[in-house]
Structure formats: C-alpha cells, structure tokens
Design a protein around this nucleic acid. Structure first.
Lengths: 106, 106
DNA sequence: TAAACATATGAACAATTGCTCATATAAGCA
DNA sequence: TGCTTATATGAGCAATTGTTCATATGTTTA
C-alpha cells in the first residue's frame, strides 16, 4: 500500500466514530417517510395529524418516526392545546435535502 | 388543514417517487463502512484489497458493499492487471459527505 | 367529571440489511 | 498448463427496521 493511501487509512481509522455518527445521520434521511416529513417541515411547522394525513400513513407510524427524528435532534416540539407541533431544529437540514436532490437531478 | 399545508402536501405527494429515490441515496450513505469507502475514494482511487485492509473488514464484505455502490452509480471501476480499481463517478459525492459532516460539527 | 380528541408507546412481526462461508471467475506467473 | 493472487457472488443467518395493533397518557369541552 503506497504512502498516500496509508495516510487516508490513518485519517479514516482515527475518525472512525465520526463516520459512525455521519452514517447514523444519513440513515435517518434514508427512509422516504422521514425525508418527506423533514422536507414538509422545511416549509411549515406541522402537527402529527397533519403529517399523518399528507403521508397517508397511520398516526402511530408517524409518531414512531417523529420520535426517531426528535431523538436525533432534527426536530423539536411545542404543545398547542391538544396538538403537538413539530418543527425543524435547524435550517441546515434543508441544505442536506437539497444536496441530495441536486445529486439526483444532476 | 390550512391552505399552505395542503400545497405542501400536494408538492410532496406528486413527487413521491423523487423522495423514494432521495431516501435510497441516503440509505447508501447510512452505513459506516460505505461512507468510509466513499470518503477514502474522494482522496484517491483504490483497489478492493486496499479498501479491505484499511477498513479491517473481509474482502467479501467489501466486495458486497462495492457492488451496492456501483449498482447505484456512485463508483466506477477499471481493471489494472489482477486488480480492480474503484473510483468515484462524480465529485458531487464529496459535497454530500461534507454537507453531513458540517451538520455534525455544527 | 366523563367523553372525545390528539399523541405516545410497547409488543409483535415481516421485510431488509450486512456479514460470513464457500465457491466461482479471471488474470498473472512459473 | 497448473498455481497463486485478486475479486465477485450466492446462500444462509443474526441483527435491525418500519409497520400495525392495542393501549396508555394528556388535553379540551360538554
């Protein structure tokens, strides 16, 4: 193995945890329901029943997905009466979606 | 559901296939071995045994992962004697990795 | 307070994933 | 031509995933 490749190996091996984290992030975007939810939330905050309605999947399934998104800090919530309103924690999430969309388009 | 949300619903429902495709793309990045391979290839083209060595995973496992990357057109190959040399199909892949890394760092 | 509505959660299950093992294919070399 | 090296591939398996179903929690309203 030549020297430049062993440098790459070193860099990646040393930062193995970082790549685990990166993979975990992408794994979350790797489901159509979740990425649709995230994309919708780039446009407007929404409550669970609204999300459930437009995705045509059950309230329970949406809640499970939202929990994943919340646990990984991609969305935050606030209560409004009976509803829980979900929104993105940061604008950077839109950048990630756009980045992937560009790849598909290109 | 208010009018602005039904517009979002429309946009997402109409482009459902696009989101499936987007999710499929991210799913590929959602594995630490694969994202390490892709990251390494942003620095230099490499053959299978080199990748296997630096990831410390078996040749067979690497081959399986490379097949996934090739099938989804993220990497391309050329033969050099006994070796098959893998490289990225396009520079945009680095952008996607950087984009995710920024999110983690931020 | 009781009924209705909105959301969350645990168990269970089928589908998918990423690996290993064994083996096939293909090129270089004695 | 046989032997070795490099890579690919199929079967099988354990682990993970995304859903459904049933039910729990929490809020509003009559």
């Amino acid at each position: 193995m030549d020297n430049s490749i062993s440098k790459i190996q070193g860099a990646i091996t040393r930062n193995s945890e970082l790549f685990e984290e990166l993979a975990s992030l992408y794994k979350i975007f790797g489901d159509a329901s979740r990425v649709k939810i995230l994309c919708a939330l780039t446009q407007s905050e929404m409550c669970v029943s609204e999300i459930s309605a437009f995705l045509s999947i059950s309230q329970s399934a949406v809640s499970h997905q939202l929990r994943i998104l919340k646990t990984s800090n991609l969305v935050k919530t606030r209560r409004d009466g009976k509803n829980i309103i979900y929104s993105l924690t940061d604008e950077h999430i839109k950048t990630i979606i756009d980045c992937g969309m560009e790849h598909i388009a290109g």
